[in-house]
Design a protein around this nucleic acid. Structure first.
Lengths: 128, 128
DNA sequence: CACTTATTGATAATGCGTTATCGTTCTCAT
DNA sequence: ATGAGAACGATAACGCATTATCAATAAGTG
């Protein structure tokens, strides 16, 4: 037998810790930087490999924002949307969801999902 | 003197005609295919070059959808959002905009813009 | 019409995110 | 403790969208 990631490695633990400690959508490069603190020498290839497996296991989900490469976050939170700071580029989760979004589609179209991204300045960048 | 695109070429006319005849966000490859009908032999490099100039002239605007490369459309329509068909991949404009979107941001955050994308099946794909 | 040069088309080159390769290391069952 | 092979790190390779290069073409002027 032996599928993938059966073994509990330090790398996998560090990558999962990064997602748990930072409940924001993370770029693979973010994950690499954050997990490297717990696991020095971590390779970027391992980050990509592990993300792929965690997606297959439905532990992570992909967050695609307009004009950005894919981010990932833990798939343990209810439906929500995202806010991207124009200053620091970081992405934050925002709870809730506007009602009746499907009503905006043209007649005869079937809506089965949506993505909403808010833009502006995060509290930290407004202060600084 | 002589800036750029001072000359009225057939290529530029065909590219603008493609946008006027297809009021949807178009990929550079879409523009190339559509404009080639009016202008056989049109090169993809010319499409990219012309799009860049039309963006600088504020004739076109960029439409970034999650997980997709940039599309472009004429900058002559009021604020609106987009619908992408999961079957054919085409993108349609949808008029209107949900109210009070900024209220969803975390306290202390300043919202100055947003992007909304609806997903589903377009009328044509539902029929076929 | 002739000339100047902006513009073009073909294609090589680039940038960047992601994946494949491969020899080495580490996990875990025995 | 030992052996099999899963997982790793470094890096080459890849895919794709976009841009640069350059000789040839064509728009606009005199």
């Amino acid at each position: 037998m032996a599928l993938q990631l059966e073994r509990a490695t330090q790398q996998r633990a560090a990558i999962l810790a990064a997602f748990r400690e930072h409940p924001h959508p993370l770029l693979p490069a973010d994950v690499h930087a954050l997990a490297s603190v717990h696991c020095p020498g971590l390779g970027i290839a391992t980050v990509y490999r592990t993300i792929k497996v965690l997606l297959a296991e439905a532990v992570l989900e992909t967050v695609n924002l307009p004009g950005e490469s894919a981010r990932y976050e833990l798939k343990d939170r209810p439906h929500h949307h995202h806010f991207q700071c124009r200053a620091c580029g970081r992405v934050f989760d925002v709870p809730g969801c506007p009602p009746s979004l499907a009503a905006y589609a043209p007649p005869g179209f079937a809506v089965d999902g949506h993505e909403l991204t808010l833009y502006g300045r995060c509290a930290e960048c407004l202060r600084g």
